[in-house]
């Protein structure tokens, strides 16, 4: 797309660690030493199995958690330390997150118009009630909902409609960075396509960058400029979409790509995917360092593993 790789990145994450201490004997290392950058106008796809730490990265970036370690720079500003009230307010509009579980992130007692209009209200981004309504109706239409929907409560929607309310809420403020966490997973293919096309249009118009978290690799392939593959909190492989899809190096990435289902019943009923099990793989993620494959393509592993992976 029109991603701008020359200037400074809109988001730089360096050595991010996010640990959760669940009990005295159980600490979850949800994110372990992860670094990546996103440039203005770029879409960075974050993929990986359930529980690999994708949402946690998103939530750390918008500062729902205090990072255990690491540095997060947004638009040139270090946001991993304490931030002032005014910076925090600016941040809340410039960076938006579309949450994975729409029911849990939408206030059940608020009408949809007030949920979507909240950002407008805080920033007094309209001069009259009718302008507010017009803005809300316009964004509703863009995500495929009707003006009549605005007076309903979240529970009065279908799952996919609710997901689109979350999308509309994030898009209405024209943020610089949108963290989209599985934001289209509950949508049928046609509306998925509509929303993805809409996100691309908005990116063209405003130069917004996306951190696109998803497990659906065919959609990630379609929307992303670059991709990062996450497993057990480690960012194992990153590169442009073509680099990853045409030359997956890490065995985990390879198993992930081989498991993409095809919409062909006879084939699908007979197919088995390449299997991968970390425990029996003999790999140790904590020992890995970034190895350069080509272009912007890197793999995290040891020297010996790198030789093995690339010898194929």
């Amino acid at each position: 797309m029109a991603a701008d790789y020359k200037g400074q990145p809109i988001l730089a994450v360096e050595g991010l660690k996010q640990y959760f201490r669940v009990s005295s004997s159980f600490t979850v290392k949800a994110v372990d030493n992860v670094s990546f950058r996103i440039y203005p106008g770029e879409t960075y796809g974050l993929v990986g199995e359930s529980g690999s730490g994708k949402s946690t990265i998103g939530r750390s970036v918008i500062r729902l958690y205090d990072p255990t370690a690491g540095k997060i720079t947004f638009n040139g500003m270090d946001i991993s330390k304490k931030i002032s009230k005014s910076d925090s307010k600016a941040l809340r509009t410039q960076m938006q997150m579309i949450f994975q579980d729409p029911m849990a992130s939408l206030n059940p007692r608020k009408k949809v118009e007030d949920i979507i209009g909240e950002g407008l209200d805080i920033h007094h981004a309209y001069s009259s009630r009718s302008e507010r309504k017009q803005k809300i109706d316009a964004i509703l239409a863009k995500v495929g909902l009707a003006p009549e929907h605005s007076s309903r409560y979240p529970h009065q929607f279908s799952g996919g409609q609710r997901q689109r309310v979350g999308i509309a809420r994030a898009l209405i403020m024209n943020p610089k960075l949108i963290i989209a966490d599985e934001c289209i997973s509950a949508l049928d293919v046609s509306i998925q396509a509509q929303v993805v096309n809409l996100m691309k249009d908005i990116q063209q118009e405003t130069g917004a960058a996306y951190l696109f978290i998803a497990h659906d690799l065919s959609m990630v392939k379609y929307i992303s400029d670059r991709i990062g593959v996450l497993h057990l909190g480690h960012l194992l492989e990153t590169g442009t979409t073509d680099e990853i899809f045409e030359n997956p190096v890490h065995p985990y990435t390879r198993s992930l790509l081989s498991a993409i289902p095809s919409p062909n019943p006879v084939l699908e009923k007979n197919r088995t995917a390449e299997s991968y099990d970390y425990r029996t793989s003999g790999l140790d993620y904590t020992k890995g360092t970034d190895h350069h494959v080509s272009g912007s393509h890197y793999v995290k592993c040891t020297d010996e593993e790198f030789q093995r992976f690339t010898a194929r």
């Binding site: 396509a193 065919s218 379609y222």
Partner: peptide, 22 residues
């Protein structure tokens, strides 16, 4: 329309097919 809108790994279309209208 539903079947046409399935993303297909074998095509490289710039835009995805959607069923027109709402």
């Amino acid at each position: 329309g539903l079947l046409s809108a399935m993303p297909d790994l074998d095509t490289d279309d710039e835009r995805l097919y959607t069923i027109p209208g709402s």
